[in-house]
Design a protein around this nucleic acid. Structure first.
Length: 580
RNA sequence: GCGCCUGUAGCUCAAUCGGAUAGAGCAACGGCCUUCUAAGCCGUAGGUUACAGGUUCGAUUCCUGUCAGGCGCACCA
């Protein structure tokens, strides 16, 4: 519909161009939706933009453009206002068309094909499998999954991926932690549980289950156990412990290692599926090591002459590519850094031929962006294809009271606990209510409220109200509008009905800009607007009237609203109940 | 110290890649249920868009500086 007005405008401009009144025509014409009702349904600033290059007064130019507009059945009139805006007022027929469109396209209403043929890879959450997901990860999950849905709705081919850091030192620390809890359970731990290991309850649970499986068979590694309290609380103590376990357990170390990894990863998968978050692939860091991809990536950087040896470590000259420091790829002990495998991982993403790669990272990783981009450029890849979205932290509140989330003590709030407390719908919605780069205050009390204060219920209620109307219609023995075929919408002559239809017509636009800007919150805000517009209409107008053509037309409008709400909620992973 | 992000109503946030009189929700105050769900609606009040300059017909938006907050500055991930 916007395209229709845009076309008319384009026609006028072409005519003026042919006459020589204006030197050129912009490739894209912007049509704004004015805030003020008196400014019409759509407005163009084209005369203001062209005035300078044409050397004309904006208002004069606007008058010429309006005069050149082709006749149209949808445009009622065009007015010139302010410094030179052209305001378009639409005919009711234009609004009726939107309602018909929703009716015809159903769950496809709002979609477009602008991303057709483009393959995008989205990587999000990718939390270390060293413990259950917490509420911070939940935001990344909700954001990533919603963005994936929105991009798919824009025709993109989306591939979601979770990068599993199953190879690093953190996993060894987890294995060590599990072992210590295992000793503890067998009353074979000679000193208190150390503070710089993973101390969450879940580690104890893993150890308990390990003990159920293998009994006391792994106790033998307690012999010669390093005296941690004596060594101290630093990294040295942990590394000594890990080295001891690897040497002493030999092949059995894998049992220990996977006891933690497998169980925690299963829990994360299960948690995300329960949250409506699905991945095309879980990509193992370990597999990158195994296939030699890391060796290859590092060798490629070396071959290109971007590396040097310093104090026994292999460094990448990141400063030559815009980073503020050079970065270590391989430590003096021969082990690759996390950075090395991440370079390999990203190089591998490029090799898979995605049009674009979008990483969603916690905001605390922002310093990491320049070095990854630097490495990609050093490998001769186009770092513009990598887009990094930094997701800020979420802070939980219970009313006005901040919920503390100390990871050190292992007492963080898990995503699972949050989902159980407020429900998936509220959690998914609240998480995407803010732009990714804004801090998020998540109020648990509000999320649980079943009232207008809670935007999720406010929107779902609007949807349910429409279904209630449909139920009432049959109960009263009245006829419903035909499900398919033609419908007469001429009875809709109330400006309030046009306003509601006008809001419907914004949905496809919001879907497009939300995708362009990577901003799911635009959908959330739109849905609140649409629900409000519906509630207003519902309160002002009786739907179930005896006049059959009018009732049919109004019910058709209402079901179009419900359909749009359902489509929008679906993009956010929130259910659209028919009854509340 | 350097870098990234942010600063908008009492609170939480919007503002369509520079547009007209900066908008919502919550909180506050005042109204609306013998009629389709009051889980709702209507109205009132609330602003020097942190501050100072600059670019522009036009700036919350772009540029520079100052102030304030968050995050980061590992041979951790």
């Amino acid at each position: 519909m916007k395209a229709f007005v845009s076309q008319a405008l384009q026609g006028a401009l072409q005519q003026l161009h042919a006459q020589g009144s204006i030197p050129g025509i912009p490739a894209t014409l912007e049509l704004d939706r004015p805030k003020q009702g008196e400014h019409g349904h759509l407005a163009s600033n084209i005369a203001l933009l062209l005035a300078r290059i044409a050397g004309r007064k904006p208002r004069d130019l606007a008058a010429e453009i309006v005069a050149a507009l082709p006749a149209s059945e949808w445009i009622a009139r065009a007015e010139i206002a302010g410094p030179g805006f052209i305001n378009f007022f639409l005919q009711p027929a234009a609004f009726h068309t939107v309602i018909r469109q929703v009716r015809a396209e159903r769950e496809g209403f709002g979609a477009n094909r602008s991303g057709a043929g483009q393959r995008l890879q989205l990587e999000f959450v990718s939390a270390n499998p060293t413990g259950p997901l917490h509420v911070g990860h939940g935001r990344g999950a909700a954001y990533g999954a919603s963005l994936a849905n929105i991009l798919r709705f824009n025709g993109y081919d989306i591939f979601c991926e979770y990068y599993v850091n199953d190879a690093g030192r953190q996993m060894d620390i987890l294995a060590a932690s599990v072992y210590l809890r295992y000793l503890e359970a067998a009353q074979a731990l000679p000193w208190p549980f150390p503070s710089n290991t993973y101390r969450g309850e879940y580690v104890r649970a893993v150890a308990t289950r390990l003990r159920e499986r293998v009994g006391n068979r792994l106790l033998y590694a307690a012999t010669g156990l390093p005296d941690l309290p004596k060594i101290g609380d630093g990294d040295l103590a942990i590394d000594t412990l890990i080295a001891h376990l690897k040497q002493s357990l030999g092949e059995d170390y894998r049992v220990l290692h996977s006891a933690g990894l497998d169980e925690i990863l299963d829990d994360i998968r299960d948690d995300l599926i329960g949250f409506g978050v699905h991945y095309e692939r879980w990509y193992s860091e370990h597999s990158l090591m195994n296939t030699g991809a890391v060796d290859a990536a590092v060798a490629a950087l070396e071959a290109a002459g971007h590396c040097y040896i310093h104090e026994g470590a292999l460094w990448f000259r990141a400063t030559a590519f815009g980073d503020d420091k050079d970065r270590v790829l391989r430590r003096d002990n021969g082990a690759y850094t996390y950075f090395a495998s991440d370079v390999a991982y990203h190089a591998e993403k490029f090799a898979r031929g995605f049009t674009r790669i979008i990483d969603m990272w916690g905001a605390d990783h922002h310093g990491y962006v320049p070095r990854v981009k630097a490495a990609l450029r050093a490998l001769g890849l186009d770092d513009q294809c990598l887009e990094v979205v930094l997701v800020q932290f979420a802070v939980l509140y219970r009313g006005t009271e901040k919920v503390s989330m100390s990871t050190r003590a292992g007492e963080f709030v898990t995503l699972r606990a949050l989902r159980e407390e407020v429900g998936n719908d509220a959690a998914r919605f609240f998480y995407v209510l803010r732009r990714a780069d804004q801090h998020l205050d998540f109020d648990l009390e509000l999320a649980k409220k079943h009232s207008e204060e809670n935007p999720v219920f406010y929107i779902q209620y609007a949807h349910a109200r429409v279904y209630s109307l449909l139920r009432q219609t049959t109960e009263k023995g009245l006829s419903l509008p035909p499900a398919a075929g033609s419908i007469d919408l001429e009875p809709l002559q109330d400006p309030r009905e046009w306003a509601l239809a006008d809001t419907l017509w914004r949905f496809p636009e919001v879907v497009a800009t939300a995708a362009r800007d990577r901003e799911p919150h635009q959908i959330a805000f739109y849905l609140r607007d649409l629900a409000a517009a519906f509630h207003t209409y519902y309160n002002s107008t009786r739907i179930l009237v005896d006049d059959t053509p009018l009732r049919h037309a109004r019910l058709t409008l209402c079901t179009a609203v419900a359909q749009s709400i359902a489509n929008g909620l679906r993009l956010l992973g929130v259910s659209a109940p028919e009854q509340m």
